[in-house]
């Protein structure tokens, strides 16, 4: 279509989604940034200054400052929230990879006629509500829950497990919820590998395990990379999982932002938290976009 559609007419197609995203995705970030420089106030909306033409831009700008940021950096609660979010997201990404890889590998090596069904079975939980899937784990992990009851019946433990409301529960929740996001790109890259490459390696005397590390794994790296970003980035800012499964000592920045906004009604501080979170995530997000563009180019 590109060669034949006149330049002006192209914009009938490009225009609507472009304008929509500029307006509702890009511009809001500038507003978040502006608000992060404001002060909290008992008013509607609950911040000051609010812009008015009569007052003039100069006066408006003079009331903005970096106070919220100095506060965030000065308070160990916020600094620790960021660090512990990054730590939890990092280790749960690795855990998810470890759980997902054998599954994706098994699926890619399964008989061809089975593969669509197996794919369907991975996608189905991904479509099921996040909230409901996290809720399902509460009944399993709580002290009188299924896991403790089951292990006590088997005689493996004599006292209920204390997993609920700990960081361990958050790890389990993240691995469980994000598993399909990891399996799908892994499967996509594993499935493309030509099996004759592996056979060649084995014919040349390579042990299966070495053939895996020297042939299969390097070829699956694009999938590993995409899957890790798909898990890591949203996990850093996760709110529902630490809120429902984590304890009071589980610090995560998404939860901190929620508390500042809903409980303390400090919109400017919540905005500052969001700006810093975005700064932390901007590099992985750009990497993700590059990667997706590369996949698209390769698909041509």
């Amino acid at each position: 279509m590109s060669t034949r559609t006149s330049d002006l007419r192209r914009w009938y197609v490009i225009g609507p989604p472009y304008l929509w995203l500029l307006f509702f995705f890009l511009i809001p970030f500038f507003i978040v940034f502006k608000l992060s420089l404001s002060d909290v106030a008992t008013a509607i909306p609950p911040y000051t200054p609010t812009f008015s033409w009569s007052q003039g831009i100069g006066k408006f700008l003079s009331q903005l400052d970096f106070e919220n940021y100095t506060f965030l950096f000065g308070d160990p609660l916020y600094v620790n929230s960021y660090l512990s979010s990054l730590k939890i997201a990092f280790f749960s990404t690795i855990l998810t990879l470890v759980v997902a890889y054998p599954m994706a590998y098994g699926m890619a090596r399964a008989p061809k006629s089975w593969q669509p069904t197996l794919m369907m079975l991975v996608i189905l939980p991904f479509w099921t509500s996040f909230l409901i899937r996290i809720y399902a784990w509460i009944a399993i992990l709580k002290p009188e829950g299924f896991l403790s009851l089951f292990l006590m019946k088997l005689g493996i433990i004599s006292e209920p497990l204390q997993i609920m409301n700990t960081t361990t529960a958050v790890y389990i929740g993240i691995v469980y919820s994000y598993l399909p996001f990891m399996i799908l790109p892994l499967y996509a890259s594993l499935e493309k590998i030509n099996p004759s490459l592996l056979e060649a390696a084995q014919d040349l005397g390579s042990q299966p395990w070495r053939a895996f590390w020297q042939v299969t794994f390097p070829l699956s790296l694009p999938g590993v990379f995409a899957g890790c970003l798909l898990v890591f980035i949203p996990a850093v800012g996760e709110f529902v999982i630490p809120d429902l499964l984590g304890g009071s000592d589980t610090l995560m920045i998404g939860k901190t932002l929620w508390t500042e906004f809903f409980n303390n009604r400090d919109w400017p501080l919540a905005s500052a938290v969001a700006v810093l979170l975005l700064l932390v995530l901007i590099i992985p997000i750009v990497l993700f976009q590059r990667q997706q563009e590369m996949v698209r180019e390769a698909g041509r």
Partner: peptide, 10 residues
């Protein structure tokens, strides 16, 4: 991939 809290707030 954007965390929901950021999208929601903005």
């Amino acid at each position: 991939v954007m965390p929901d809290v950021i999208t929601g707030l903005s």
